[in-house]
Design a binder for these strands. Structure first.
Lengths: 187, 187
DNA sequence: CAGTCATTTCAGAATTTTCTGAAAGTTAGG
DNA sequence: CCTAACTTTCAGAAAATTCTGAAATGACTG
């Protein structure tokens, strides 16, 4: 590997974290490399920078494109494919959330739905189904919320996060108002 | 494996999803089994239900306890250790979020902080550092928000999610009010 | 404190995942 | 179409992870 020190440390870290994030070391490193690179890189550049085989880079790029984390970017007068990462970090976050949901949550949601349709044959399954219903309800709320929030543009999303749990304060205020109105009506 | 059909399907699914969730098949299955079980189970119960080795169960339980997803629960007049999962699904969500943050986000945040302290030695590293700063900022907002929200009790958290992106409406309303006040002051 | 029951540890077997080099496939230009 | 540049595929090697059985450890009881 042959990179400036800070870039290298970043790339190595992403390689190490890869397995915890559900990708492999090479994929993590390729992503990190493209992320800090000032210009699109071609496969050979990546081979040189990381010291892994050409075929490994090819597979890694394929996976990253499947995740929508890396985009092909045509460079004029060069036949070779070049690649970059989108540079809006909020967009990256949205992409990551979307893809992880697709891989890690959706399959479970659909299995739960299916199992909740079935008729339990005994007490054990009746209890199991009740537990599944609880889990299903929670995941459902979570994904409904997510479907709502994912549409926010970067700036608004950042604002929402900045607000933090002070949202709760707004909620409380709203509750008070609603309570007040109800009180008046009932009075 | 010897379980009622719905419980079995659930357990098998968790086993399959395990690798995507960063745990192994047995760990996924043990969790699922305890989750749907109407009472705490001991290690031998788990061996019987899942058909894996005793030692594998021991290691799996250890990992699940490290994740705080499974708790030892003493059963009177029984020498053996028994285990359960907490049953509030919102509590489970909080635990999961906390542990995944600890494993998947915190190490990166600390590496980023460290690398941002260093003096870049050339233009490439200067650019790399700028990109890292962008990523750091995004993760920081995210974790600040999370630190806020994780304190909410289950009921309030559910309410927040139920509100969804309508929070944005509140934000807009707030912006309008603030704008109004500013306008008045300036007038 | 010997014996039994329960749990953990750990070395190596089994399995799965990752990575490579060679071969096949694809595309643009002559 | 032929060739050269580039990319992908894929079988098997290498590495990492998961799982097991045997042995060690711990802890309660008579």
């Amino acid at each position: 590997m042959n990179l400036p020190p800070l870039a290298q440390a970043f790339v190595l870290h992403f390689g190490e974290m890869g397995s915890r994030w559900g990708i492999n070391r090479t994929v993590g490193q390729i992503y990190a490399l493209l992320y800090v690179s000032p210009r699109p890189l071609n496969a050979e550049d990546i081979v040189d920078a990381l010291g892994v085989s050409r075929s490994n880079v090819s597979m890694g790029l394929r996976e990253l494109q499947a995740w929508n984390l890396v985009l092909p970017k045509h460079v004029p007068d060069d036949r070779r494919d070049h690649f970059t990462t989108p540079d809006d970090v909020w967009q990256i976050l949205r992409t990551l959330a979307e893809e992880r949901k697709k891989r890690e949550v959706d399959p479970t949601l659909s299995v739960l739905r299916e199992l909740l349709m079935q008729e339990p044959g005994n007490d054990a399954d009746r209890h199991a189904q009740a537990r599944m219903a609880a889990m299903h309800g929670m995941i459902e709320s979570l994904t409904t919320w997510y479907d709502d929030v994912k549409r926010l543009e970067s700036e608004r999303l950042a604002a929402l996060l900045a607000l933090g749990a002070r949202v709760t304060k707004l909620l409380e205020a709203k509750d008070r108002v609603v309570g007040l109105v109800r009180g008046k009506k009932e009075a």
